[in-house]
Amino acid sequence: MPDENLCKSRARRVRDLASRADPFTRKRLLALADRYEAAVAGPPDAAPHAVVTATTSEDAQRNHFTDGVKPT
């Protein structure tokens, strides 16, 4: 992650520049400031993954099927 103080400082400066820019440039500068702030916040949380661990081959076989019973 980039240095937090640097990203916050650049986001403030870019927002200040955007306040004095034409509409097209303002939109792009504000998007850039958002990216700097997102870098400080870090990546969004990922969806949790199901973790299945098996300690024996029997457990592995049972976990392979959703109801614990082999289909016939």
Rank of each mutant, 00 (worst) to 15 (best):
R10Y: 15
V14I: 15
R35E: 13
L30M: 06
A39C: 15
V40H: 03
H49P: 05
R15S: 05
R35F: 09
S9P: 06
S19V: 04
F24Y: 00
P23R: 03
V51W: 08
R12G: 05
D16S: 13
N5P: 05
R13P: 04
R35G: 05
R26N: 02
P48K: 10
R20F: 04
L6V: 13
L6I: 14
A18I: 02
A18M: 07
P43M: 14
A41H: 10
V51S: 08
P48E: 11
S19T: 09
E4T: 11
A31P: 00
P48F: 08
R10T: 11
A31K: 06
A39M: 14
P43H: 14
P23I: 01
E4P: 09
D45K: 14
P43W: 11
H49N: 12
E37W: 06
R28K: 07
P43R: 14
P23S: 03
P48C: 08
D34V: 04
S9T: 15
P2R: 10
P44G: 09
T25R: 06
R28E: 00
P2C: 08
A11M: 03
A33V: 00
D34P: 05
H49A: 15
P2M: 09
P2Y: 13
A31Q: 10
A47V: 13
L17C: 05
A47P: 07
S9G: 08
K27C: 01
A31W: 06
L30D: 01
A39N: 10
T25A: 04
P43G: 14
P2G: 10
A31F: 04
V40K: 03
G42T: 06
A38S: 08
A41K: 15
A38W: 05
P44K: 09
C7Q: 15
V52A: 08
A33T: 00
A11W: 01
L30C: 04
A38N: 10
A11H: 03
A47S: 12
A18T: 02
L30H: 04
F24G: 01
A11C: 06
R12K: 14
P44L: 12
A47L: 14
L6Q: 10
A33K: 00
A47Y: 09
L17E: 07
V52C: 06
L29R: 03
L32S: 06
A11K: 02
S19G: 13
T25M: 02
A21G: 01
E37C: 05
D22L: 03
D3W: 13
L32P: 01
G42R: 05
L30Q: 07
P43S: 14
A33L: 00
D16H: 11
Y36D: 09
L6R: 10
R28V: 00
D34W: 05
G42W: 10
A33H: 00
S19I: 04
A47C: 06
L17F: 11
A11V: 03
L29Y: 02
